[in-house]
């Protein structure tokens, strides 16, 4: 019961704020709605027993990426609103129509995968490839963090290092793009 109340409240707020993000007139308002949206998604992660990812969500998304967006909105000082000029060949309602088609497709996939999930569960089900490891009795360390660190540094070590290289390349690329003279 409590889980249902939390889920429905969070779902309504997340979807409502998502709509606000894409419908707000001013880009600054969009960014601010986006922060709240990210924080609510982090709360959803906590209810799903993913505390470490929730913390990362708050730190990286709500803390880092959103500040980046705010800086760009500040740097790109718009004298005329960017929405004013519309290409006469643009047909806006096709976008909504296509998005509806995407939603129908995704929901069809969800229902198909749920029915195949039940069939698979009847026939033995999934075995977890990376099951939750035992966690020690450290008083300050979250069990979820310990488990995730264990998996990240054993099974997923090479992807982890590749991600660090990707971030390095992105950092260099962003500096090269945004710098006026090299």
């Amino acid at each position: 019961m409590a889980e249902a109340i939390v889920f429905w409240t969070l779902a309504v707020l997340i979807l409502g704020l998502g709509v606000m993000v894409i419908s707000a007139r001013s880009a600054v308002h969009s960014v601010l709605f986006l922060v709240v949206n990210f924080l609510l998604v982090a709360v959803l992660y906590v209810t799903l027993n993913a505390e470490f990812v929730a913390v990362i969500q708050v730190l990286v998304y709500a803390g880092g990426i959103v500040v980046l967006y705010l800086f760009v909105v500040m740097l790109v000082n718009l004298k005329k609103a960017p929405e004013r000029y519309a290409d006469p060949r643009r047909i806006a309602w096709t976008g909504t129509l296509l998005a509806g088609a995407v939603l129908a497709e995704v929901i069809a996939i969800v229902y198909a995968s749920v029915s195949s999930d039940e069939a698979g569960a009847a026939g033995g089900g999934f075995g977890a490839d990376t099951p939750f490891a035992e966690c020690g009795a450290g008083p300050l360390v979250s069990c979820n963090t310990e488990q995730l660190g264990w998996v990240l540094y054993t099974s997923y070590l090479i992807p982890f290092e590749l991600a660090s290289m990707l971030l390095l390349v992105a950092m260099v690329g962003a500096i090269v793009l945004a710098k006026r003279h090299l």
């Binding site: 993913a50 470490f52 990812v53 990362i56 969500q57 990286v60 998304y61 880092g64 990426i65 980046l68 967006y69 800086f71 760009v72 999934f126 977890a128 490839d129 990376t130 099951p131 939750f132 490891a133 979820n144 488990q147 995730l148 998996v151 990240l152 099974s155 997923y156 992807p159 991600a163 990707l166 971030l167 390349v169 992105a170 950092m171 690329g173 962003a174 500096i175 090269v176 793009l177 945004a178």
Partner: peptide
């Protein structure tokens, strides 16, 4: 009860950060 999903989310967040930095540049 499989941690691979959470590991994937960590990677998605890393790629999203890279994408935001390059895109905004």
């Amino acid at each position: 009860q499989d941690l691979a999903g959470q590991v994937f989310v960590v990677f998605v967040i890393a790629v999203a950060a890279a994408e935001a930095a390059v895109g905004l540049g």
